[in-house]
Amino acid sequence: MMRLKLVPETTSIPFMKFRMIAIAISAALILLSAGLFFGMGLNRGIDFEGGILIEVGTEGPADISAMRSTLGGLGLGEVALQEFGASDDVLIRIERQEGEAEAQLAAVDAVKAALEPENPGISYRRVEFVGPKVSGELVESALYAVLTAVVAMLLYIWLRFEWQFSAGAVVAIVHDVILTIGLFAITRIEFNLASVAAILTIVGYSINDTVVVYDRVRENLRKYKQMPLSELLSLSINDTLSRTVMTSVTTLLALFALFFFGGEVIRGFSAALIWGVLVGTYSSIFIAAPLLLMLGLQRGARDDEEAEEEPETV
């Protein structure tokens, strides 16, 4: 049976020749992402902003403009409506009301009283309220989660490899996280707890790709003692390219299925992961590996000691 080969078993692409172009592109994208983040900000969801979230279902296609006009006259502050999946499913976001829980419940009752006369048979599928204290704690916890993951990866790579590998891996991770945040800023995809989960997943995927390349680099450092480091890095990436491409393609197939058929609830999460797989694959090749060259990686004593400890094969 004939198998489809997306990448030949052996390739000889001179990746290191393009490293400065790739680093320049990455630097520009990082600056753009930072500008978008500080300029436009993120479209923070109710998890981080606080407020009231109501998901309603109508008997037929919802008249969003009429519902928006009705709710806009209630004096509840900012009210946002959007179709949530099907045309009869509407998500309503209302800014946090002044006062305690009673004020939030009163706002929900006012919304129900305004919508029911114009939308017979309307159903309320979900009502959520997030207060300012909870939203602040969620922001803090999300930041700690991402920072803890990055620091843990740094320590893991440092213990497994040498410090140049650790620095390169962490820079690649930070690169992927910043570009993902830039994606959220420019596309205005809602940033919520699911988005934080997506970023943590991207961190894990990126480090996995990077470790595969680094393992082959370390193996080739022992094998080719006289080969120039630039050529050795390109050789190592080519050695793992087939595995990298096949892993990325199969992951993307699953993610595209989630994006198109998984519904509106996980669409933002799926979009972030699709982007993360692409930038994670890119950074493991054009960021993590070239940084070893820029940081002056040497064939250190650790590699020689490990080579001596390995049993000879007969």
Results as ranks from 00 to 15, higher is better:
L29E: 03
A86N: 06
A34D: 12
G268M: 00
K225Y: 06
N208F: 07
R96H: 13
G35V: 01
A103T: 11
I178Q: 04
D239W: 04
Q298I: 08
S141K: 14
A172E: 11
T11K: 04
V217N: 05
S270Y: 00
P132M: 00
V139T: 12
T70S: 15
T148F: 11
L229K: 03
P8N: 13
V277G: 08
G39D: 07
A66E: 15
N43S: 08
E55C: 05
I189C: 05
S195L: 04
V277R: 03
A289Q: 06
G50L: 02
P311V: 12
G45N: 00
I199C: 09
G45A: 01
M67N: 05
E190T: 08
E83L: 13
G263Y: 01
L155F: 14
S270E: 05
G35S: 03
M294E: 15
L4T: 12
E264Q: 10
D109W: 02
S123A: 12
I30P: 03
R68P: 08
L193N: 07
A22P: 06
V130H: 00
A24M: 12
A114V: 09
H175C: 10
L29F: 10
S284Q: 08
E98R: 09
V171N: 10
L291N: 09
F48Q: 00
L253I: 15
T251D: 05
I25F: 15
A289V: 13
G50M: 04
L6W: 09
A197M: 04
A34W: 13
M1N: 13
R125G: 15
M153E: 08
I186R: 03
E83I: 14
L76K: 00
A66Q: 14
N43F: 01
G121K: 02
E98I: 07
F269W: 00
T187K: 04
D239V: 10
W275F: 15
L155A: 12
T201G: 14
G57M: 02
E219G: 05
A101S: 13
E306L: 15
F286K: 06
L297E: 15
L229P: 11
E310V: 09
F37K: 01
L221F: 02
A198G: 05
